[in-house]
Write a protein that binds this DNA or RNA. Sequence first.
RNA 1: GCCGACUUAGCUCAGUGGUAGAGCACUCGCUUCACACGCGAUAGGUCACAAGUUCAAAUCUUGUAGUCGGCACCA
Length: 938
Amino acid sequence: MEIAKTYNPKEAESAHYQKWEAAGCFAPEINENAEAEPYSIVIPPPNVTGNLHMGHALQHTLMDTLVRWKRMQGYRTLFIVGTDHAGISTQLMVTRQLRKDENKSPTDIGRESFIQKVWEWKEKYGGEITRQIRREGLSVDWSRERFTMDESLSRAVREVFVRLYEEGNIYRGNRIVNWCPKDKTVLSDLEVKEEKAKDGKLYYLQYPLKDSDRKITVATTRPETMLGDTAVAVNPEDERYRALVGQTLELPLTGREIPVVADEYVESEFGTGAVKITPAHDPNDYELGLRHDLPQINVMNKDATMNENAGAEFAGLDRYEARQRVVEKFEELGLLEKIEDYDVTLPHCERCKTVIEPLLSEQWFVKMDDLRDLALDLMRREKAPRFFPEVPYEKVYTTWLENLKDWTISRQLWWGHQIPAWYNDAGDVFVARTAEEAAEKAGTNDLVQDEDVLDTWFSSALWSFSTLGWNGEVTETEDLKTFHPTDVLVTGRDIIFLWVSRMVMTSLKFLGEKPFKDVIIHGTVLDKNGQRMSKTKMNGIDPLDVFEKFGVDATRMTLAGSATGVDFAWRDEKVESFRNFANKIWNATRFCLMNSEGAEVDYFYLNPQAETTEIIETIGDELVDDIDEEDEEFLDKVVPEFAKDNPKENLSLADKWIVSRLNRTALDVNKSLGKYEFHTAVSLLYHFFWDDFCDWYIELVKDEITSETVNTSRDAARSRILTILEQALRLLHPFMPYLTEELWQKLPGTSRELHNAAYASAEATIMLADYPAGDASLIDERAESEMQAVIDVISKVRNIRAEMQIKPSDKPTVHIAATADAQKIFAQNEAQILKLARAGGLVLAETLDVPKASAKAVTAAAEIALPLEGLIDFEKETARLENQLGKLEKEHEQLQKQLSNANFVERAPTEKVQGIRDRVAEIDAQASALRQNLEALR
RNA sequence: GCCGACUUAGCUCAGUGGUAGAGCACUCGCUUCACACGCGAUAGGUCACAAGUUCAAAUCUUGUAGUCGGCACCA
């Protein structure tokens, strides 16, 4: 078989996805086991018109890894995919395009044709993100793809709205809200971000008292709002102003008379201790206004220009122009006391960065008290959902819930779920699932539907169950029964409040169960300088570019290799090292395939005992009665091919060792994934494959495998390495789906036989192969420590060679002094030692008997010497030995200090103490050998 | 103001009450018949600082400094 020397990711990436999808591998129906445990994940729906960014790539990788892992284990898996209509950002995008193409605004073309345009836009560009999701290799079930504005999901939205309204948890009210003058819509508190203003100023304005020379000075950052002032407030305890409470001020520029009121809200220490009160433009003033029954004067339009209430002189001015003008006027009147620089943070629209204007406005709200209690009870009762990492997110989530305020859900947009409320001529409201229902309630068809739409997150809040078919009318589906609650939600910390908490609340409310058991909060991918990636900074890294450059699998490994929940700086070097890893896997496989004639993947090479058991199961009990399992002939009788070369009898130390390492790795990988410690799993697999399998196992069995003598033991060795490799590919598959499938398909002996039993009749693919669980009984401590002894000897000889600058072509004899048992191990592995240490011969003895001109080293199990007549540099050798000795002595000193502490010996666990004693004895032995060696050099 | 996280090798980061780890970079040597996206061998850290708990602290507690994040407030 001709295979390229370097792995080309693009070939593999173009080949397999469509095949998997066409074969139905992503859908739960592929699972033939009616009893299979379900496993489900819903994808956080990306914006329908959005593009993939690193945050998506990260969370998608984690989810897909989990789903592929569980699927291979035989779970009935469902990975739900879909997109979000993303009200504001989509509407903005289309509005911008409309301006560009036709130089028109949405109002120019009207609501209906605008919405039509958005749907067209969605059809045209909505496919981009889903194509990118395919490129990532996500094993999502496309047959169940959803969009938040699908009919059924919209039905669910209306149902939830109506029910919450009917029980009084949705209401309409006039409140101070966050108003974005640019997007011209209200925003929830979560869509507003506080940012430092560039040059904040504090203006000190004087308001004259009526019929008096006295003035009160108020400090404000927004002088233009004084046009809407309806009072000045002071603290009732404030001596300075006590006499003035109840008196009347003449509000400059307006001619209005306003009272001085006393309220605890005012802090005497701040500013002048007197606060101007603008109930229509500030939340605190609004509350205070209610307490004192003050009028609310709205002086602004929806685009933050001043309206006629501000007076003719100001009407039509932008808020900042108005501010300037007000200040000038005060100055002219001699009422501007001073202007100070002042650090002020202002609320900004998260999307367009415009400064938010607090505005009194009539909106729809969700009362959160009942819903909040449901979520908090769940946490108290079941500690659910469980957050990973638990610290700090469980507390962040809980604290937020505890302080939850009502949720503003109406938006002055056209794109979204229009609020299912209708009004008659009298302005009476009728909330209903449909226009017909509303008409019935109103007793007239002459109704107008509320113009506003719902916050995008309102529909997202239902995502875990609306995607599975719940819409109020339909409340039970096979999918809901099987897959809800879902198993785990993977998302970023920025939407714990926006999305995670709301899903919990709605799911508890409407289904009576949690939406997911666990929540993984992943970290943020930062740029290489540790800065957040952002469009404005132009420092974003496009995952698609990275796929292009290094391959999808390498990218996935990089992302999965970052610790759960921790931010990490993006470095191309990291991906590069995983690209190299992919290439390593490619080439290791290439090597095995180049030497695969006469061999195939056959899992009994891993575990002959299990094979025996399986044979017994296959042939049935009646036959077994006739067979003595201990009989050497047993296997010959049942499987002739097997009997020709019973691998059970022929396993070398290296074979036993790699089987042990493989099983240990498999066990640990499964354990790590179970705890969502992806980076641990990645590291385990990386080192098992590269260090154990490539650097040692392949090298140890290379001669055997590449032997030109055709015989059964060579073929058995070839089959063994193929089998180990195949297991490794399976372990890697959830992380590196493309590469592993590409290679797995090339391995001789791979077929649907290797599938998990749940996928017996599906077309052969590694994604349905049984995920290796690891078998603790196949962990062979003895083989591992014996192999370590061999590895230590080889490493030490290599060390001597490197330090003494021995040419690769020179092959000195290696002398080893060791116990009889250890000698036996070295003897059995003589060929490997000679090959890997580039030695000419091996001399084993109880004690070393070598000339003075020898380089020496010690390992835990052996003393090593290389006679190097003429090659050795005595000074260098002395320095080398002293260096080794120095390290041992330092360690000895530390350990001895512990042992001489009576408290330690008395109180520490005995095995700890014994462990240190053993180590000290080992160091003593090695050190004394080194001292003798040094002595011999003199 | 409240809450929280982080500070470990030159860089990016794991780790965890019991002898300090990885990848990359660096140094030295290798066209060894899978791979130079490679192989082999080194070097490199008083685990931010200080005090405390403990037989034992990089790991737990407290404090300090620096970095960053969330929430609230901001006349």
